[in-house]
Write a protein that binds this DNA or RNA. Sequence first.
DNA 1: CGCTGGATTGAGTCCGGTCAAGCCTTGTGG
DNA 2: CCACAAGGCTTGACCGGACTCAATCCAGCG
Lengths: 209, 209
Amino acid sequence: MTAAVLAFQPLQPALGAASPGSVMAFAAGEEIYAQGEEASFVYQVLEGSVRTVRLDVEGRRQIGDFYHAGDFFGLEMGEEHRFAAEALGACRIAVIRRSTLDGANDLERALWQATARELERAREHLLMMGRKTAREKVANFLVDLADRQAGAVKALPMGRQDIADYLGLTIETVSRMITQLQAEGLIELSGLRRFRLTDARVLSRLAAA
Amino acid sequence: MTAAVLAFQPLQPALGAASPGSVMAFAAGEEIYAQGEEASFVYQVLEGSVRTVRLDVEGRRQIGDFYHAGDFFGLEMGEEHRFAAEALGACRIAVIRRSTLDGANDLERALWQATARELERAREHLLMMGRKTAREKVANFLVDLADRQAGAVKALPMGRQDIADYLGLTIETVSRMITQLQAEGLIELSGLRRFRLTDARVLSRLAAA
DNA sequence: CGCTGGATTGAGTCCGGTCAAGCCTTGTGG
DNA sequence: CCACAAGGCTTGACCGGACTCAATCCAGCG
């Protein structure tokens, strides 16, 4: 568990401790649940980051979302998971059996709220996919990521391919845009997995565009 | 109210009749609620179709989703609506005050489920936006629309611009793709707002691609 | 140090966007 | 029932941003 990963701000309190769930640890790249697997649990990130992934018939890959400390995921209503969930790096996950929620009114409500928040994020994501240029998408992605982390130096816990599959771009285009933003002095990379927003103002306008 | 509009299959029973809500009628293009408006109601389509729309800073337009008979919409968790809702054609809408839901456990649960279903649709939509070609997007759109309607001849209740803004394409591209699919004998238009799938098999493969 | 897989860079292509006419439904009024 | 307008839709020519293919580069690690 690196300091960088811990820098993510939990958006909601841990449910794990208070609820009859267990805590599991996963290593980088490990699958937490599979696409098509029965959805009998809900999950909360305690430490680390998680991605949800789906492959279509042609093998094209789409990232549904990234989840960091405090986030719930696996909130499907259907019988099975439409996306797989995978650990981005080493992480600890609280696993809560769905059936234990029945009748637990506040838990139920908390999960409904989490579901609605998810929906909001999905719609925001949609908006971005529909009408933004590659440059705007990448700027938006970095600003969002930075917003969730304290400190000037932000972690970039996912690889370029993951970013590409999240934004609906190719890895080459993502790479070019990052290089470009850096050349313009809007961001600053240190290594591949660490960055700073050197001009948050311009970048935010770009992202919002 | 035309027969075509009524052909949509309600996916969930009407809540309006059973609940302390009122029913309102809207004409084509009328706004049901505005972007940024306080979200103190939830809505269910009784007759007709509805679109949710959002304009970004640059004036780019994105359709969030289309809703037909039986569908709930306006299910935001936040204080205000992120998208506006507008009547596609003449329609009747059940309006349910959110506060009347407190403590009504089965209603609450029904709405959570509706929220989760929305989330699923949003993710499906996302998948499509990320990785599909214009041709696949349009095929997918038509197959989805057809699936929700009985009878061989399907209604196309929205205009080309709405389809474009839903799929993240331009109106010209949508038009070209429709023309192309028709030229290949996969679909058949009669007028601008009515179509048949003449080769559902091939079309579905295209859509799934 | 030397590997190795991820990331970058470059050249060329193509899909979908843009700009610009026209066409056709649809609805209105004579 | 037809004429006419008006908006929505289609079509065409051209352009450009993102993709593809391919060759390095280099950070991270043993």
